[in-house]
Amino acid sequence: MTERVPILRIRQVLLVSIQTDLDDQDVLLLQDDLAQAVVDSGAHGVVIDITAVEIVDSFVGRMLATIASLSRLLDAQTVLVGMRPAVAITLVELGLSLGGVRTALTLDKGLRMLEDDRVERGSEGTAPDAVAHA
């Protein structure tokens, strides 16, 4: 049975929140769906929320790294939010550094990170008070 993870769009950001234990096929499906959604929406950012994720193994880790590099090629930034401390400890011991993946502790901080990027890059849109939360 395949389980599709919903991809939500909030303005220029795509938000994915992983809530169930996905099998490897669902993980690959999510990767493809996200790449397509970035292209279709022209979003400048992708936020992946893993607050509810109890383990990240090498397969999911690789998917996260792939999404980060894929979206970069498609002109979008990816931020991973909500990693549990036990997951972080395990990832390091497993040998997975997720070097190319940016992380933020909370969804709010992740969204701000993307917003700040946008302002720095001098892109369109009303640049809100970028200094206020620097």
């Binding site: 109890e54 383990i55 990240v56 193994d57 090498s58 036990a86 400890i89 395990t90 011991e93 497993l94």
Partner: peptide, 17 residues
């Protein structure tokens, strides 16, 4: 402990795959 649970489940996932 929570960390040990997480480590064990992760190892199991790798080996099962």
């Amino acid at each position: 402990s929570l960390v040990d649970q997480t480590k064990l489940i992760t190892a199991a996932s790798e080996l099962a795959r």
